[in-house]
Design a protein around this nucleic acid. Structure first.
Length: 731
DNA sequence: AGCACGCCGACT
DNA sequence: GTCGGCGTGCTC
């Protein structure tokens, strides 16, 4: 009854707390009724919180006399455009997070404080005239005269006048507006002619403007010109007066990507990524909300950008795991982008050379229209992939003779070689030759990695660091040996072996300084023969045209991992790596060292037919009843005490089973566990989980809705942390 | 999640 | 005598 609410003047507020409900507050007499989505500041359990007005129907069992009044209404119009509001409402329901948590995490931190946003001003940013202030000195008058002609940097100002400039700034007559994250491209360059497939793809996307709910999968190998299709589609959206949202994987948002878009589209651009400061994010948010951004290029969180008049969404490399947020509010930006596009009735293009099985399943169901790009744009041969059987071979620090020879040939031919090894450090284990003891992290119960240059043992799971022991902690013998090869060890070997060529190691240990990575890559891209050794950081996205050889070390790890997505990831990675090799005139070579050359997945990768690979993977998932053929959610929990963790998860499982007894479709959801998590112990905490599976979404989500409310309202041992992961990326 | 209140150890 | 440890309980 809305009039009841009006009489009592009560609003329901979504607050940043995990409690799965809204909170009722009284509106003070003089305060006008705020609109849905407006932020308010309220007293809450002794502190002051900022929440969002999310309803007007008071909870019937609450005495209005006991409600607290709102402290302040923070704005007159809602912060979020309607489609974003709708998306976040959906996300809260879908991921079973409290609405307040979800709404809050979508807004930049810089805007969460009620006080004015502190904007970081660029060093030596130009000053501009703010008000028509009066000069109090002759010097100030001179400054004002200069400013009347245009912005003025302190560095460009005569030294004797600088003091006057600062005085004016202090009085607020002049100011330094924050540099907008906006860049207007001046004169776009001409688009190259599209090939027939590209043209057909663009035509299909353009047809989708106006047609409701058009989602497309643009599937094309590396070098087939997907970006040209995005550009043409974006151009079409801009021509319609609409804005464009382009999501890219974390690793793919490079200056080159932006430059490519900027050089081709006449539009106001903004870039959004995790390295932005709170002030920059706040600026950008305001600009997007004001409709001042035509093209937004961003990583995962950009799916929540308050874009006005959105006409097209692009998700590049849609299979990439960086679209999934792994902590806090766990969401998939790819999935939410699909939802946002569908709500708005605008086209969305998911692009990939190696689509996720989820996307391929949607193609089969007719929910995604597949657009193919088969041809590589520049005529070039596919790289040759070879397996090197290392079962009975003499190896040198993890590298086979064949690999070393291939590297030498490549360098002698003036090209570059890349060695991929997905383990950083010197060696993955320190083991005693005498008693067989492997030194483990006490907190995680996993082998610690040897870092030789740092003279340390490190745990890659909890970042614990200790000195390398001189004797075996178990038998006191001094026969401790570093077992296996990480990038550091391979790098040492390669430096000795190929002393006359430069060797670059690229992993988290060597590229901690931001910018050094991009700098090195640019150097390598432009340079002569050298050897790159790195982790997966190197596999994706970067344009390294002179690489003619890729050697993959340790691919077998991916073949036998327990994680149900491991094979899919390995196949995608290897296909991606193959795309890396030989993008210039020289056809590339890929060598995969393996103990299992007959493994069916590797055999399929040899043929470089992702279609064949994905059909097989799909078949496997169908038989094992795993996503995308079932809907999955994982209730993850961790606790210092193992039996307490076990007890709590058992009771949660019991609770779920009781709820299922009363459900309409009984036992439509299967509850597995408690079972240990893939990282069963980490930093002295035990991790375990329940896995919930259902053939369709509805019964699973009905169960989760009730279960999460019960779990949040029931008291639990203080030390237990838990989180629900809907559509988990790994198990 | 915070942040209170609340009841037991080593400090001025 | 009290500062403070974190156990448990509540938040409109």
């Amino acid at each position: 009854m809305p009039y009841t609410a009006a009489m009592h003047r009560i609003v329901q507020v979504a607050l940043p707390t995990p409690l799965p409900k809204l909170f009722d507050y009284l509106l003070p007499q003089q305060t006008p009724m705020p609109a849905l989505g407006v932020r308010v500041s309220v007293p809450f359990s002794g502190r002051r919180l900022i929440g969002f007005v999310a309803g007007f129907t008071p909870s019937p069992d609450l005495d209005p006399a006991k409600l607290k009044p709102i402290h302040a209404v923070l704005e007159t119009t809602p912060l979020m455009p309607p489609d974003l509001w709708q998306l976040l409402q959906f996300a809260a329901r879908y991921y079973h997070r409290s609405l307040g948590d979800v709404l809050t995490s979508a807004v930049p931190r810089g805007m969460r404080a009620s006080k004015a946003v502190q904007v970081r001003v660029e060093k030596d940013a130009p000053y501009v005239l703010k008000t028509s202030g009066v000069a109090r000195t002759y010097e100030q008058a001179q400054i004002l005269a200069q400013l009347a002609l245009g912005p003025l940097r302190a560095s460009a100002c005569a030294p004797e006048l600088r003091k006057a400039l600062l005085q004016l700034a202090k009085r607020g007559v002049v100011e330094r507006p924050p540099a907008q994250a906006l860049a207007q491209s001046a004169n776009p360059s001409v688009a190259p002619a599209l090939n027939a497939e590209q043209a057909a793809a663009v035509a299909a996307i353009v047809c989708a403007f106006g047609a409701p709910n058009k989602a497309m999968l643009l599937q094309g190998v590396t070098g087939s010109g997907k970006t040209e299709v995005y550009l043409a589609a974006a151009h079409a959206a801009l021509a319609r007066g609409q804005s464009v949202l382009v999501l890219v994987p974390e690793i793919g948002l490079t200056p080159q990507t932006l430059q490519r878009f900027q050089s081709r589209l006449h539009a106001r651009f903004a870039v959004m990524h995790s390295a932005l400061s709170d002030g920059e994010r706040a600026n950008f948010w305001q600009a997007a909300r004001a409709g001042q951004i035509d093209v937004l290029l961003g990583t995962r969180s950009a799916v929540f950008a308050p874009m006005q008049n959105l006409g097209l969404i692009v998700v590049d490399e849609e299979h990439d795991s960086s679209y999934k947020q792994f902590d806090g509010f766990r969401y998939s930006a790819r999935d939410l982008a699909l939802k946002r596009a569908s709500d708005l009735g605008i086209p969305i293009v998911l692009g990939s050379a190696t689509p996720s099985l989820e996307s391929l399943h949607m193609v089969q169901l007719g929910r995604l229209q597949r657009l193919w790009l088969h041809q590589r744009a520049r005529a070039q041969n596919m790289p040759a992939i070879q397996l090197i059987d290392i079962k009975m071979q003499q190896m040198d620090q993890g590298l086979s003779k064949a690999a070393l020879n291939a590297i030498r040939e490549t360098l002698l031919a003036g090209s570059q070689a890349l060695i991929m090894r997905n383990r950083r450090g010197f060696a993955p284990r320190l083991s005693c030759q005498h008693c067989g003891h492997v030194v483990q992290c006490p907190g995680c119960e996993r082998p610690m990695t040897v870092h030789r240059a740092a003279r340390a043992l490190r745990c890659h799971y909890c970042d614990r660091q200790e000195r390398v022991p001189s004797a075996c902690p178990q038998c006191r013998s001094d026969a401790l040996h570093a077992m296996g090869e990480g990038t550091e060890r391979i790098s040492e070997l390669i430096s000795q072996h190929f002393a006359e060529w430069p060797v670059h190691r690229i992993d988290r240990d060597t590229t901690s300084r931001k910018g050094s990575f991009d700098h090195l890559l640019a150097q390598v891209a432009a340079g002569g023969p050298c050897i790159l050794i790195g982790t997966q950081m190197l596999a994706k996205g970067h344009d390294l045209p002179n690489i003619a050889l890729v050697v993959v070390v340790g691919a077998d790890d991916g073949l036998f991992a327990v994680d149900f997505r491991a094979s899919e990831r390995l196949a995608q990675l290897l296909m991606q790596v193959a795309g890396r090799a030989g993008r210039a005139e020289t056809p590339g070579r890929v060598l995969i060292q393996t103990q299992q050359p007959e493994h069916p997945l590797l055999q399929k990768i040899l043929r470089q037919d992702y279609e064949e690979i994905s059909v097989a993977l799909m078949q496997e998932r169908r038989i094992t009843e795993l996503p995308p053929f079932t809907r999955m959610a994982i209730l993850r929990a961790d606790c210092k005490d193992f039996s307490m963790l076990q007890t709590w998860l058992k009771s949660a499982a019991q609770r779920a089973k009781i709820l299922l007894q009363h459900a309409h479709s009984k036992n439509a959801v299967l509850v597995y566990g408690p079972m240990p998590a893939s990282m069963a112990k980490r930093a002295h905490r035990h991790h375990a989980q329940l896995v919930l599976c259902a053939p369709t979404r509805a019964p699973l989500h009905a169960l989760l809705a009730e279960l999460t409310v019960q779990l949040e309202l029931e008291k639990k041992p203080a030390d237990i942390h838990y989180a629900l992961d809907v559509d988990p990326y790994d198990d």
